[in-house]
Every structure is written in structure tokens, then in C-alpha cells.
Computed example of a mutant assay.
Amino acid sequence: MTTKQPTNPKKPTQNRTKRASRALNIKNRQSLLEVAFGIRSLERMNKITQLESDLNTVITKGDTVVAAIRNEKDPNRKTEMEKAWNTFPEVKVALTSIQTKVKGVMAQIKGTNEEKSLTEVSTKYKPLGVVDFNEKIDLRPLRLSMKLLDPAQQNKEIEQALENLDDAVSMDWGMVHASFVKIPNLLAELEKEFKAFFEESKKQHENHHQFDKAKDKSFMEKIEEK
């Protein structure tokens, strides 16, 4: 007696995967983006601590560029550079503020134990929400304008420091503060949803296993009857 093979048989693992994937339903997918942004912000902060020397260079020596602009002979280049550097006093204050706040944040993080759950991670983020990041920094105009200086007035040290810092520092830091405030609750909610997903997946797997056992038992009983 030959057994007819079903056409396009579906593997049990494929069916289980599809059922399990449907169980994972993040209610607010924006929360994943918020958490990702928070993690990226911490990565930036870690980079800033590694660029301490560059920060100090811009903060302590940036005024030399302002002085060099005053001596620029080309009126067009002078106008362009003044446009970029006329806010340097505010930039200097913002950089000094960020330097202090980032040091405090990184000190808090490094002093905690390794997390074993999203809830524990959220506990780490709670103190960070208290730090009032409100700076808006854009170093790109300063960095690009350095090319306009007369070669005799150029300062490669400051130019390189600005280039190193631009990606890590240039942003609206108020968004970081808002993210750190939200993340503890977001992580707690995500952990609940992931837990529900894994519990549902486990339940489906157990049900499927019991169903397979029942089918096998029924099949064997029919054979024995024959």
C-alpha cells in the first residue's frame, strides 16, 4: 500500500514560526525608535569622553580663531567667517556645559552593575532623565569656515578638533533629555510585551506538541486495528 504524499507540504517548524511571529505585536513601535535613540545618545556621550582633549582645544583656543578673523584682509572671506563664528561665545558655553553633564552621566553608568533585564536597564536610565540637557550645538559651520582663513592664520589643531567633535556633539541635546525621561517607562512596557510574546510562543509550542502526540497515537491505534 502506497501513501500519497501531500502536495507542497509545509514543515511544522515553518507553521510554528508563523504562529509565533504573529504573537509579537509591539503596541507602540515608536518606543523602539526612542530606545534606539537613547542608546545612540549614550554612544555619543562615550565618544565625547574620549575626545576630551579636542573639547578642551576648542573651548580654550577657539577665541584665537575669532581674533584671526579680525585680521582677515579678504572682505568676502571675512564676512563668511564672521557669520560662522559670531556665535562662538554661546557655542563655548554650550560645549563646556555638555562636557560637564556628559562626565556626570557616564560616571553614573559606569558605577552600576551589569543589567540582566530591560527593567534593570530602565533603572539605570532613571537618574539620567534628571540631567537637564538643553543645549543646541552645530559645529559644522565653524569647521567648514576654517578652510577660508588665510594660510598664515590657519590653526590645524582647532580645525582637526572641530572635525573630530562634529558628529558626536552637534545635535539638539534637548531631544536627549526627552528621550532619557521616557526610556524607563518604555523599557518596562517592552519587557512586558516581550514576556507575553515568549509565554505565548511557549504555549503554542506545547499545544502543537500535544497535537502531534495525539495524531501519532490515533495513527498507531488505526494500524493496530487492521
Rank of each mutant, 00 (worst) to 15 (best):
S170K: 10
P9Q: 12
L187C: 04
I59V: 10
K92Y: 01
D167P: 03
F88M: 09
Q160D: 11
E193F: 15
V130T: 10
E193L: 13
G104T: 10
A84T: 08
D74E: 13
V169S: 04
I183D: 11
K217A: 15
I109H: 14
Q14E: 12
F198Q: 05
Q50I: 03
R140K: 15
P151N: 05
N86R: 07
I223C: 01
E206P: 08
F37N: 10
D54R: 01
K27F: 02
M81S: 08
K92Q: 13
V131W: 12
I137C: 02
E115A: 14
A214P: 06
M220I: 13
Q160R: 06
A196M: 10
K147E: 08
S179F: 05
K136D: 03
I48L: 11
M45N: 07
H209L: 15
D132M: 08
Q50V: 04
A168W: 00
V58Q: 10
L144C: 01
P184D: 06
V176C: 02
R40C: 00
N134M: 09
T112I: 12
K73V: 15
S117I: 09
E80M: 12
N46R: 14
V130L: 09
R29V: 15
T2F: 05
L190M: 12
D138A: 04
E82D: 09
S122C: 03
K103Y: 02
N25K: 09
D212G: 04
I183P: 05
V66R: 11
K215W: 13
G129N: 02
D63A: 07
N207M: 14
E191A: 04
D172S: 07
V105M: 13
Q160H: 06
E72C: 09
Q210I: 14
V35G: 04
V66K: 10
L149Y: 00
S145D: 08
Q99E: 08
A188R: 03
H209N: 11
N86T: 07
H208G: 05
K222Q: 15
A36E: 10
F133H: 02
V66H: 06
K147N: 11
L24G: 05
E157F: 04
L139W: 12
D212T: 14
L186P: 00
Q5T: 12
R44D: 15
I69Y: 08
V93Q: 13
T7K: 15
S97Q: 12
A20Q: 09
T100Q: 14
P184Q: 09
K203D: 13
T112K: 15
E52T: 03
K136E: 05
I109Q: 13
K116H: 06
E199R: 07
L51S: 08
L42M: 13
A20V: 08
M45S: 10
E200T: 13
P75R: 01
L186I: 02
